[in-house]
Simulated assay, not measured.
Amino acid sequence: MTTRTKIALVTGGSRGLGKNMALAIADKGIDVIITYHSKADDAAEVVKAIEAKGRKAAALQLDTSHVAAFDAFFKEFSTVLNKTFNSNHFDFLVNNAGTALYAPVASTTEEQFDTAVNIHFKGVFFLTQKALPFLNDGGRIINISSGLARFTPPGSSVYGSLKGAIEVFTRYLATELGARGIAANTVAPGAIETDFGGGRVRDNKEINDVIAAHTALGRVGLPDDIGGVVAFLCTEEARWINAQRIEVSGGMNL
């Protein structure tokens, strides 16, 4: 009996945590489609890296804040599924794409607010909605939240609140999609050394040291600390995990 190779869609997979997730998922024997916003060359390198692991891969351009473009995206997605992966459906949706926003409540503009909502909640909601006809029964949805939905340093009120919304949304997904055998969970990274937010955690030693001092395991997180957790949620061993928030922060701000 031949086992069907499963397929994951990882948004924002050309760099940072999304890249790490995509590579870790490929290590589990899963084919991967990534999306990228503007860095086509970086996305192509991730595709090559996945293919070097013996898996099929593809990269598609997507602005996750632009809901009006989602129908065209899924038309292209369907074509790629057929031509590259010989399939009409996929198995794992990882909603990872996002940008940082550091602004105090007193000075956050309506434009900043609306942009963040479109990327971190509206876009995730409607991308997931439009992905559902393509998602196999028994599949998984993994939404990326943040430790900032639990702890509250000044300046992240909008971002943290939207990640809180994602965590509630995920529980509704688990409830409504349970009849199809689809599990939905959130992974909430703590502070990680990437280029996210201009690389401030990675490149600012003062910030890095403060975070490390407030983390039980005594250091700031690395991309390799996150990707494997997301990949695990795509495995059969994780089949009974559903509607959970899994914080991966090394014990930050306990």
Rank of each mutant, 00 (worst) to 15 (best):
M1G: 15
G12H: 01
F74G: 00
F73R: 00
D209E: 15
K83T: 14
I241N: 13
V80L: 03
L135R: 00
G181P: 11
V229R: 13
W240R: 12
T115S: 09
K39M: 06
A49H: 06
A100T: 06
R180L: 00
E45K: 14
T128Q: 04
N88F: 11
P153A: 04
G16L: 03
T11E: 10
L148P: 01
G139W: 00
D42Y: 11
I241E: 07
L233C: 09
M252I: 09
A69L: 12
G251Y: 04
V46H: 01
K75Q: 13
S249P: 07
S87D: 14
R150V: 13
S38E: 10
Q61C: 06
H37F: 10
G18F: 03
R245G: 11
R140N: 07
A97D: 08
I141Q: 02
A22S: 06
R180G: 02
L217M: 14
Q244P: 12
T5I: 14
F169P: 00
A216E: 10
D225C: 08
G250D: 03
V124N: 03
F134S: 03
C234T: 15
G198P: 15
N82Y: 09
A59C: 08
T186K: 11
G197H: 06
V158C: 02
A43F: 01
M21T: 05
G250C: 10
A188P: 12
N143H: 11
S65F: 02
T64H: 10
T35P: 05
F125N: 06
N143T: 05
Q129M: 04
N208V: 07
M252Q: 15
T186Y: 03
L173T: 10
E51S: 11
K39P: 07
L81W: 01
T128I: 04
N208W: 15
T3V: 13
I119N: 01
